[in-house]
């Protein structure tokens, strides 16, 4: 049986990759994909913990998270597409109408 820590390490790596992606990527789509990566890292962690506790709650939580991810995809893509069709770019740095 694979120990829980291995799963956690995997999920940690995924999460870190997602985090790095969010912080360094400049295209909206890539940022967005990185976020999805983070969500899946969370899913792995949830499932791993659910297994180690022998408790199905964590698995149901994964279901919810998957749904959230799907809803986020739908809405996020809609926003990205709306912007892309107007200005042919999804580079976050190009969006500077609202400057701080």
């Amino acid at each position: 049986m694979v120990p829980t820590t291995s799963y956690l390490a995997l999920s940690g790596i995924l999460f870190a990759l997602g985090m790095i992606g969010v912080l360094t990527r400049r295209t909206a789509i890539m940022v967005f994909l990185s976020v999805e990566l983070m969500l899946n890292a969370a899913n792995i962690a949830l499932v791993a913990f659910a297994r180690s506790w022998g408790d199905p709650t964590g698995q149901t939580a994964v279901f919810i998270v998957m749904t959230l991810a799907a809803a986020e995809v739908a809405i996020g893509l809609a926003i990205i597409v709306a912007i892309f069709r107007k200005r042919e770019t999804t580079n976050v740095d190009d969006l500077a109408a609202l400057k701080g």
């Binding site: 279901f63 998957m66 799907a70 809803a71 995809v73 739908a74 893509l77 809609a78 069709r85």
Partner: peptide
């Protein structure tokens, strides 16, 4: 056509519903 995006999104939503 933007319609394809719509289908894609609808699919995602309904597919998740199915998964539930």
């Amino acid at each position: 056509p933007v319609h394809f995006y719509l289908v894609a999104m609808l699919f995602i939503i309904f597919d998740i519903e199915t998964a539930f």
